[in-house]
């Protein structure tokens, strides 16, 4: 698959505050890429850069295989971003959706057809909603109109920043369906920043994890933030979790603070019965809460609740069958100390 975006050594900062440092990232054309990570991890900044709304401080950004520099205005006609907070012009719903089409010189008749189609895609009856002014909409309706504004453009790339974060459940379902349909009908490349991991795992062809302005693996990485303290004669770092169990890690690399440790789901060993773990291994008992098929790897991702923190473990479908896993089961997760790697706010795992 061709890459629509290729980022190399892209950085961004607001004044002295560095918010983004992406060494290398490719986003395939026609795919659904999910961005995950805690608040402040740089997802929104990355989306604004991908939308060509703010230029990166440094680095190379290719769009469609060619350098984007100097073509921003032209590219902005193909790429559109839906902001987290819906923003509508002080006009009717119809005029809002027609605005971008007018800019592109699309005929009145075609505009009406597209507005109708875009509204239907977000589950809004044209007769009822089209003449409504901007202020007679609920939060969920405003977000759906905002999405319809973008869908009417039939964009090559649709970027979505937490599209379902502040909306009611019914609106969230309509928004999710509309996004998937856009890709199916027009081959639109979709990039979604969202905390809704279940949705992302369901629709995304690729998931990118972010932490502290950096790309940290495929987004499935467990990030363990805790009160890490030095313990014992060998200067091990230990974090005591809510349940009272301990997680032990090796000291971080020089220059990295022991604040957040990343643990790849592939490094976690899953057993059903409590087994004595080898020396130097962490062993935690937990409850299996959810299992999802990872489209990107073909593996099964098991989400577990380990007394206050949730950890994801990646296993093969064969093992899942062998262990006869189902949600609610008690499991034992074990992983070597070395598998925990402290990451800096702005290193890759």
């Amino acid at each position: 698959m061709k890459n629509i975006y290729s980022l190399r050594a892209v950085t961004h900062s607001y004044g002295e505050h560095h918010t983004l440092d992406v060494e290398s990232l490719d986003i395939p054309e026609g795919g659904v890429t999910g961005l995950t990570g805690p608040n402040g991890s740089g997802k929104s900044t990355l989306l604004k850069i991908l939308a060509f709304l703010q230029p990166p401080r440094s680095g190379k950004l290719l769009f469609g295989g060619e350098p984007s520099s100097g073509r921003e205005r032209e590219i902005r006609r193909d790429v559109t971003l839906l902001l987290q907070d819906p923003f509508l012009l002080r006009r009717t719903v119809f005029e809002n959706i027609a605005y971008g089409l007018k800019l592109r010189g699309i005929s009145r008749a075609e505009t009406e057809t597209r507005v109708r189609d875009a509204m239907a895609r977000v589950g809004m009856a044209t007769e009822d909603f089209a003449p409504r002014p901007w202020f007679r909409l609920s939060g969920g309706e405003a977000q759906r109109v905002s999405l319809a504004v973008r869908l009417a453009l039939r964009p090559r790339v649709l970027l979505l920043d937490e599209p379902t974060a502040n909306v009611d459940e019914a609106s969230a379902i309509l928004i999710k369906e509309a996004v998937v349909r856009a890709r199916r009908d027009w081959g639109t490349t979709i990039v979604i920043a969202s905390h809704d991991l279940a949705w992302l795992h369901d629709v995304a062809t690729e998931i990118v994890g972010m932490y502290g302005g950096r790309v940290v693996g495929d987004g499935a990485a467990n990030l363990i933030r805790g009160d890490w303290r030095i313990e014992g004669p060998e200067d091990r770092y230990v974090s005591i979790m809510l349940d009272g169990f301990k997680i032990t890690a090796d000291a971080p690399q020089p220059g990295i603070l022991a604040k957040c440790a990343a643990l790849s789901p592939s490094d976690i060993n899953v057993t059903v019965s409590p087994a004595a773990s080898p020396d130097g291994h962490n062993s935690i008992s937990c409850t299996l809460t959810q299992m999802s098929m990872e489209r990107t790897t073909g593996s099964i991702l098991c989400a577990t609740d380990c007394g206050g923190i949730s950890l994801k473990a990646r296993i093969s479908p064969d093992l899942a069958r062998e262990l006869k896993l189902c949600p609610g089961m008690r499991l034992t997760l074990s992983f070597p100390r070395e598998a925990l790697k402290f990451i800096s706010s702005l290193g890759s795992v």
Binding site: K48, F87, L89, R90, L153
Partner: peptide, 28 residues
Amino acid sequence: LDGRLRMTLATLGAGGWRMAATSLRECR
């Protein structure tokens, strides 16, 4: 004017004069 206005207009493809005119209309 709302800080999101400029960003919204830009991401819908407006630039230069069109953005200025729409901004003016927004604060009519």
